[in-house]
Structures are given as structure tokens and as C-alpha cells.
């Protein structure tokens, strides 16, 4: 494999990792601050994609669609938090899993009710379509570059938000000791709603960006949800830094596994069989990675608590 191809594949891994980070950041924040397992996070991703497709189709502007996706997901997140999630903080993980599983059913079937079963159209805006030539002669999709940029920007923004702002202080305090910050006079209910809506907005944004280059359809959130869980478990639940490292690890492992494993098996097997076996192993690669990490470090890479 040429160096240029290798670099291109690394970029691809980076891009898919950063999108996973947008999903994982919300999940890990919600778990870290409120101690809640939210299976319905993938539904918020779907809400973002549908809102973007809907608004983009109505107005003809992708950018309005993107704004709508963030707004719609944040609003959906806030509503769900106030109506349902709030009652689950004091419950055990089992109740949380079941209740948010119920939310998945409601969101998926509700969306199908509104939009029907056919996939929606959503495409890259003209200003970001096509590909550019990077230094070294790599041809790379402009939109994917933009996704990488957006992902990095969100990551920096989140670190600043958590590290430098008042809300960030409250969030970190909440992770450390929930009773404590209530005693300090922080309106904890408002903080929780805010954190949940923030996580939802990030998921909605990821849904819109990824939906643009993939397909917008009911159920699109579930595979991503599982991956996002893998990410936060590898990184250590509750840690934003862990989510970032975990997301990049998963993105790179998945991409490079798909590319390299079949070639590896090709060295000592017949081509058809090698590609098949290699692809099979590649699809298991991230789960093997996760199991390895957990066996060596049962609390994830940057885990504060189990």
C-alpha cells in the first residue's frame, strides 16, 4: 500500500472517530454527571438527521437544516429529560436501560409515523461538495475535511466549556459529588436539563453531518449508539478526554482493520477466502479492542469510577 493511500485511510479513521466523539461526548457527560445510561441517545442522533433533511428540503439550505438539527435535538433532549429522564436518576441502571429502551421504540415508530418508511434525501451543500488536493497529492472529500474540522472545533469547545466556565465547574463538581453542589445552591435540576440538552445537541449535529453522506432513515441511530458505548467504555465512563481518545481509537481500528486485515490474510490464503475472513475479523475488531482494554484496565483508559 502506498504512503498516500495510508495517509488517506488515517484521515478516514480520524473523521469517523471524530463523529463518534460527538455522540460519545453527550453519553459520557450524561453518565458522568447524572449517572444515567441513556440508550435513547441514538434516537436524538436520528432526530437531528431527520430535522436537517426536512428543513433542508423545505428551505433548500443545508445550513438552515444543520441549525435546525441542533435545535431540534436539543429541544427533544430537554423535553425528554423533563418528562422522563428526570425520574430515573435515582433508579438503578436496569430501570434506566428499560426506560430508555422504551424511548427508542417511541422515537423510532413516531418518526416512521411522521415521515414514512422511505429513506429521506439529504445531500452535501454545493459549497462543500467535491474533493480537494491536499499537500502530497492526496485527493480528499471537502465535506469530510469539514467534518474533521467541525469535530475538532467541538472537541476544543467542550474542553474549554468544561475546563474554563462556571457551568463546567458545576459539571465537574456534579461528577465528584452530587449532594455537594446542591448544597452549594446550584439549581441542579436546571443543570441536569442543560447537560442533557447539550449532549442531545451534539448527537443531533452528528446525525445531520453523518446523515449528509450516509442515508437518513429510521433506525440509523442504533448501530452508532452501540459504537458510542464501546467508545465511552474504552475511554472510561464520565471522561471527556477518554471519549475523545476512545473515539479516535475505535475510528482508526475500524478503518484500518477493514483495509489491512484482508491484505494480511491475502499473504497466506486464496484471495476470495482471505477477503472474506479478513472482513469477518475486521467487523469484530473494535469489540476485541474493547474486551482487551477492559481486561487490562477494568475501568477503561481514563475511568474515574466503575
Amino acid at each position: 500500500m502506498s504512503t498516500i493511500l495510508l495517509i488517506e485511510q488515517l484521515l478516514n479513521g480520524l473523521q469517523s472517530g471524530l463523529m463518534l466523539f460527538l455522540m460519545a461526548a453527550g453519553l459520557t457527560l450524561v453518565f458522568g454527571v447524572m449517572g444515567l445510561i441513556n440508550l435513547a441517545h441514538g434516537s436524538l442522533y436520528m432526530v437531528g438527521a431527520f430535522a436537517c433533511a426536512g428543513v433542508a428540503a423545505a428551505t433548500g439550505s443545508f445550513w438552515l437544516g444543520l441549525a435546525a438539527s441542533i435545535a431540534a435535538a436539543a429541544a427533544a433532549g430537554a423535553i425528554v429529560e423533563v418528562a422522563v429522564i428526570r425520574r430515573l436518576y435515582a433508579r438503578d441502571h436496569l430501570d434506566q436501560v428499560l426506560a430508555t429502551f422504551a424511548l427508542i421504540l417511541i422515537f423510532s415508530e413516531g418518526t416512521r409515523w411522521l415521515y414514512g418508511s422511505f429513506p429521506l434525501y439529504l445531500n452535501v451543500p454545493p459549497s462543500l461538495s467535491g474533493s480537494v488536493t491536499l499537500p502530497g497529492g492526496i485527493q480528499y472529500s471537502l465535506f469530510r475535511l469539514a467534518i474533521i474540522g467541525a469535530g475538532l472545533a467541538v472537541a476544543v469547545g467542550l474542553f474549554l466549556l468544561i475546563g474554563k466556565t462556571r457551568i463546567g465547574v458545576q459539571v465537574r463538581a456534579g461528577e465528584a459529588d452530587r449532594e455537594m453542589i446542591a448544597a452549594l445552591g446550584v439549581d441542579i435540576r436546571r443543570l441536569y436539563t442543560l447537560v442533557f440538552a447539550l449532549g442531545a445537541a451534539l448527537a443531533g449535529m452528528a446525525g445531520a453531518l453523518v446523515g449528509t453522506i450516509q442515508s437518513v432513515q429510521v433506525g440509523m441511530g442504533e448501530p452508532v449508539l452501540i459504537l458510542a458505548f464501546v467508545v465511552i467504555v474504552i475511554g472510561g465512563i464520565g471522561s471527556i478526554k477518554g471519549a475523545l481518545v476512545g473515539a479516535l481509537l475505535v475510528g482508526l481500528t475500524d478503518t484500518m482493520g477493514r483495509v489491512l486485515l484482508p491484505s494480511l490474510f491475502d499473504l497466506f490464503m486464496e484471495t476470495s477466502a482471505a477477503t472474506s475472513v479478513g472482513a469477518a475479523l475486521a467487523s469484530m475488531a473494535i469489540y476485541i479492542l474493547m474486551a482487551l482494554v477492559l481486561v487490562v484496565r477494568p475501568g477503561g483508559l481514563f475511568g474515574a469510577r466503575a
Binding site: 441502571h93 469489540y287 475501568g299
Partner: peptide, 25 residues
């Protein structure tokens, strides 16, 4: 070796490994 949420997720990971193996074998 793990507990809590980590246990939930590692059991899921092993399940997924077997699932993908069965699909492509």
C-alpha cells in the same frame, strides 16, 4: 474483572463478537 456499567458493556462486546462471527462464517 469489571463491575457496573463496564460489566454491561463487556458482556455486550463478547455477544457482538460472536454475532459478527456467525454472520460472516
Amino acid at each position: 474483572r469489571t463491575t457496573g456499567v463496564y460489566f454491561i458493556m463487556i458482556t455486550l462486546a463478547f455477544g457482538q463478537m460472536i454475532f459478527y462471527f456467525a454472520i460472516s462464517w
